[in-house]
């Protein structure tokens, strides 16, 4: 399963990079969303899927999965959410001010150069 998940993560990264390299700001943000999904899944996969029970103490169970990657991912999810939200509002404001979301047109302003 880990082998397949490695390919899935690679695929997510590929799609994310493809989107990040586009011109539209919204697409770039969607790309970063995919990128964080890929990264989270990658952390989980690298932690291995050994163990059959969720990491919550239950009587008679010893075969818990590794809780550390989960804690890390939980932190990462929240942080990436914060950044995405910020980024999205930034894109919204940029569009309001500059009347474009095309990255190739956002080359400095009249005060610059």
């Amino acid at each position: 399963m880990e082998i397949i998940m490695a390919f899935v993560c690679g695929f997510l990264f590929m799609a994310a990079i493809y989107l990040i390299l586009s011109r539209s700001l919204l697409r770039i943000i969607i790309g970063t969303g995919l990128l964080s999904h890929g990264a989270h899944l990658l952390i989980l996969t690298m932690g291995s899927f050994k163990g059959s029970a969720p990491p919550v103490l239950t009587d008679g169970v010893t075969d818990y999965v590794d809780p550390i990657p989960q804690a890390l991912i939980l932190t990462a999810i929240v942080i990436s959410f914060g950044v995405t939200a910020f980024f999205l509002v930034l894109a919204y404001r940029a569009y309001q001010e500059l009347k474009t979301d095309d990255m190739t047109l956002m080359k400095g302003s009249e005060d610059h150069e």
């Binding site: 998940m5 490695a6 390919f7 993560c9 690679g10 695929f11 990264f13 590929m14 799609a15 994310a16 990079i17 493809y18 390299l21 890929g38 990658l42 996969t45 690298m46």
Partner: peptide
Amino acid sequence: VSIAVGVMVTLVA
């Protein structure tokens, strides 16, 4: 470029 990055992630993983 995106394929290269994807391949890289897979290989490293």
